[in-house]
Amino acid sequence: MHELAITQGIVNFALDEAARRGAEKVTALTVSVGALSGIVPDCIETYFALVAEGTLAEGAKLTFRRIPARVRCIDCNAESELPYFRLRCPACTSRSVELLSGREAYIESMEIEEKE
C-alpha cells in the first residue's frame, strides 16, 4: 500500500512540473532507486499506470536506474558492493564502513512534450 502513496507522489511531482513548464504531455520519467532505499520498483510500476491514467502522464515510460549499495571500509580501505543489506565490509567484515551509495530515491529526469 505504501508504494501507492509513493507513486502518487511521483506522478504529482511530474504533473506539477509539466504544468509549470506549460507542457502538453509527460512522455517519460527516470527514477533512481538505491538498493537500500526500501523502494520496490516493480510495485511502483504496477501502480503507475493506475495513478497516471487520465492525466498528462498517462502512458509515460517509466525507467528505473538501480543504484547498488557500495561501502568504503575505514579499516582495510576496500571499496565494495554490498551483496545484502548489511553494513559490513565484504572484504574484512569490519563494521566501520562509510556508505557510498544505496539510499537514493529520486526522480532524475523527465521528458515532456511542449505545446506548439
Binding site: 507522489g9 504529482n12 511531482f13 512540473e17 513548464r21 532524475e108 512534450e113
Partner: peptide, 14 residues
C-alpha cells in the same frame, strides 16, 4: 524535451 530534475521521491512527505 528531456529535463533534469533530481527530486527526492519522498519530498512530499519530508
Amino acid at each position: 524535451m528531456e529535463i533534469k530534475v533530481i527530486h527526492h521521491i519522498m519530498e512530499w512527505n519530508e
